[in-house]
Design a protein around this nucleic acid. Structure first.
Length: 506
RNA sequence: GGUCUGUUCGUCUAACGGUUAGGACACCAGAUUUUCAUUCUGGUAAUAGGGGUUCGAUUCCCCUACGGACUACCA
């Protein structure tokens, strides 16, 4: 088998989309599986869409996701440079070669010329029939062309595609694909600004960089036959890479491919990391900042369009590399389901060692300027562990350990808060006041003692107790919560609740 | 509109002609938890439709329907 060399080749036009991470991941898995090389190439040939910071963002995103680059932007390598804007002379050389050999030609048409041509015929394209009516080196005389070129008139170089040729290509996911060359237009290879288009740059670089597999999104499938033609005209058909067009990521609901709009609308991230738009200054929150662990995101993404064929669903990167095969990538687009991502995250988060989890809580506390003993943090993490999905949940769902509630859950306050509850809580708080060691066990004993004395069922008032201590209607084990808080704090909170809510008792 | 491409539970998917069509997420129910959650157990739920081929089609072929991508001097 040919040496595996794959590339992830995004263009720096903004933040990398989550789908881009998946594409990079599949490339990476194949490279690692076969001891190949993972290359990062930046396709920055569109100067009008260049966004500063986007390249650094891509590099950082991949690093965070655990996708290591062996060669390319940021690390260098034998085929440098890996930024297309720095490889322009190469593209020019090959474009010229194509012109010289009659596979490409100069075109001088203005935007209006093109517009008129398109209006003339339905489904118009610049091709073997329409090019005869346009201003190009096929219709103009040699001296006219020379004159225009020497006067530096604006022009592009177009690929000359014959009208009747069948192009066959094999996609490793979709099998054999046949297209008639008459369906393809004479694509621009070199733009009038002197930069190559994607098609030329891509083919030239993939060839020169000895790419073995082109693994990219399905949106490229329609132009794959064009690329085959380019390889053919350039004389590189025998070294052509294998094509692998990945199914797209689709909207969670409705139709179409996943977009930033959907993500915003449904409240989940679309970018791996926070991204500040340089123009608007608006910050889009990333997976990292939301609290997704890279291993969870990777596991989730890997399964969007691929599966190992077994019932195992939890895979580390190493295990993915081991199990990955191109053959098991699906054909149909995969709907994006953030709930599944959350489930993966929950799983990976809970399987972290306790000291890591304590670290998460401490991170939040530091931000809030709250001191907390290691012992207390340890106890909190122990009882919160089974309830969290994101690292910040330790703080967000456990705030009450540090801040006494100033308001109370309305449902509980109206439905459960009654004379019995107040009676029990009053008695309970005066019982524990004198205790010097309130722990989960003694708290439970005391509570049971109080309720049985008053002839009230503990279950009846438990939610009121919780509410008065935490403000909320749900939370971790109440007895442990009281142990962590200590008897003085528990007593204070009960008093505050009784004071605040007594008006509602009739 | 044209070209290419796809279609199994709500979602991700398994089943490379023969299965009671399997798993996971989500959802629902029961048990545990003297609350919520966790955990455990169970459950609802799918081969887009129509023709072929075949002893037998989720699986192969055709048509229809419905999606998706592309259709720029953007990638």
């Amino acid at each position: 088998m040919r040496e595996v060399r794959v590339r992830f080749a995004p263009s720096p036009t903004g933040a990398l989309h989550i789908g881009g991470i998946r594409t990079a991941l599949y490339n990476y898995l194949l490279a690692r599986k076969y001891n190949g090389t993972m290359i990062l190439r930046i396709e920055d040939t569109d100067q009008t869409r260049y966004v500063p910071g986007a390249e650094a963002y891509i590099v950082e995103s991949l690093a965070w996701a655990g996708i290591k680059i062996d060669e390319g932007v940021g690390v260098g390598g034998p085929y440098a440079p890996y930024r297309q804007s720095e490889r322009n002379s190469l593209y020019k050389t090959y474009a010229q070669k194509l012109v010289d050999e009659g596979h490409a030609y100069y075109a001088f048409d203005t935007e209006q010329d093109l517009e008129e041509m398109r209006k003339r015929t339905p489904n118009a394209q610049y091709d073997s029939v329409t090019r005869l009516q346009m201003k190009n080196s096929l219709t103009l005389t040699g001296s006219e062309v020379d004159q225009k070129l020497s006067m530096n008139e604006k022009h592009v170089i177009r690929l000359k595609i014959s009208g009747k040729e069948e192009i066959q290509l094999t996609d490793l996911i979709r099998g054999s694909i046949r297209v008639q060359s008459s369906q393809i237009d004479d694509k621009v290879l070199m733009k009038s600004d002197g930069m190559p288009t994607y098609h030329l740059a891509n083919v030239v670089d993939d060839y020169l960089m000895k790419i073995s597999h082109v693994i990219r999104g399905e949106e490229w499938l329609p132009s794959a036959p064009l690329h085959v033609l380019l390889y053919r005209y350039l004389g590189w058909e025998n070294d052509m890479p294998q094509f692998v067009h990945l199914p797209l990521l689709l909207k969670p609901d409705g139709n179409g491919k996943l977009s930033k709009r959907d993500a915003d609308k449904m409240g989940f991230p679309i970018f791996p990391l926070n991204w500040q738009d340089p123009e608007s200054g608006h910050v889009a929150i990333g997976y990292r900042e939301t609290g997704y662990l890279p291993e969870a995101l990777i596991n989730f993404l890997a399964f969007l369009g691929w599966n190992p064929g077994t019932e195992q669903e939890l895979f580390s990167m190493e295990q993915l590399i081991e199990a990955f095969t191109l053959e098991r990538i699906g054909k149909a687009g995969a709907r994006f389901d953030i709930q599944k991502a959350q489930w993966f995250n929950q799983h990976y988060l809970r399987s972290k060692p306790d000291d890591v989890l304590i670290g998460y809580l401490n991170d939040s506390l530091k931000k809030e300027n709250i001191d907390c003993s290691q012992e207390k943090a340890k106890k909190i993490v122990a009882i919160m562990k089974e309830r969290v999905t994101f690292p910040k949940d330790f703080w967000e769902q456990g705030k009450f350990f540090f801040i006494a509630p100033d308001s109370f859950d309305e449902q509980v306050a109206t439905k459960k808060w009654n004379n019995d509850a107040v009676k029990v809580l009053t008695a309970f708080s005066s019982e524990i006041k004198s205790m010097n060691n309130l722990n989960a066990e003694t708290a439970k004993e005391t509570l049971e003692m109080v309720t049985s004395k008053l002839g009230i069922k503990t279950g009846q008032i438990l939610q009121s107790l919780r509410m008065s201590i935490t403000g909320g209607a749900s939370g971790p084990d109440l007895m442990m919560t009281m142990e962590i808080l200590g008897n003085a704090e528990v007593g204070n909170r009960i008093h505050f609740a009784i004071e605040t809510l007594k008006v509602k008792v009739t």
